[in-house]
């Protein structure tokens, strides 16, 4: 079994493991595959047998998102966090070998995250339970889809304005089209683009009746839509503050989540 050993005596709290891991797993703000904990600083008033009276120690905790960097390690690379660790206090390997490094002279923590088998079993069980729950009419949200979800990005020009669109959860759109539409994904993207340009507050993608198999209009709700303006070019960057001054938009980044 593989694991990660941390000689947390020397962890400096530099956050590199957290950020390197996010880069690897594609996690977003507030989510971690590995997350620092900090104890201290405080000074002991009770005598303790130690080198200094100060406690100030960091230790990263490995979360359930960690897959021990399967893809990287298969190529012979180090896990992303271990590679980036600035204090050089992280080790990756077989837990038996790692355990031998723990010499009692400094403080160590050995992490054995979920194994591949355990992870697959969990996903399978969760899916099975979800189906049953679904049968009973309970709506479920498959959060795992977020990580697995398909993302597409493309850019275009609307007059002088650059428009960049990112679609998250494209598989939902695809499934919707397969069920109701006569048009393909590319045509639907153009549709969507037109709808977003005409109404930034749209809450659903509307499939017009003439594009539907059954001749009736259908809607696919948007989970979220995020806009980022950029007024530079006519004026300069900085987004909304400039728009409020009545300057034209030079670029718009739109993220649509299904």
């Amino acid at each position: 079994m593989k694991g990660i050993l941390i000689n947390y005596e020397y962890c400096t709290g530099c956050h590199s493991c957290e950020v390197a891991c996010r880069n690897e797993l594609g996690l977003t703000a507030g989510e971690y595959g590995i997350k620092l904990t900090e104890v201290g600083p405080y000074e002991y008033t009770t005598p303790i047998a130690a080198d200094t009276p100060y406690e100030w120690v960091y230790n990263p905790t490995i979360t359930k998102a960690c897959d021990l960097c399967e893809a990287r390690t298969a190529l012979g690379k180090m896990p992303s966090c271990v590679q980036a660790c600035q204090a050089w206090c992280m080790y990756y390997g077989e837990v038996e070998d790692l355990a031998k490094k723990m010499d009692g002279k400094t403080r160590w923590a050995l992490y054995a995250p979920l194994s591949d088998d355990a992870r697959s079993a969990m996903v399978a069980e969760r899916e099975a339970l979800a189906v049953e729950a679904g049968a009973a009419g309970v709506k479920h949200v498959d959060t795992a889809a977020k990580v697995a979800g398909k993302t597409e990005s493309y850019g275009t020009w609307v007059g002088d304005m650059e428009l960049n669109i990112t679609l998250r959860g494209v598989e939902k759109l695809e499934a919707f089209l397969a069920e109701f539409a006569t048009i393909d994904l590319e045509a639907a993207k153009l549709d969507l683009e037109a709808q977003i340009i005409s109404d930034e507050k749209a809450t659903a993608y509307v499939l017009a009746a003439d594009k539907a198999v059954d001749g009736a209009a259908h809607e696919l709700g948007l989970m979220a839509i995020a806009m980022n303006y950029d007024a530079q070019g006519t004026q300069l960057g900085g987004g909304k503050a400039y728009l409020d001054k009545g300057q034209a938009v030079a670029r718009k980044d739109v993220t649509i989540m299904f």
């Binding site: 530099c14 590199s16 957290e18 590679q83 980036a84 600035q86």
Partner: peptide
């Protein structure tokens, strides 16, 4: 040696 701070990451 491959160590990198969060600003580069």
């Amino acid at each position: 040696n491959g160590k990198l701070c969060m600003r580069c990451l």
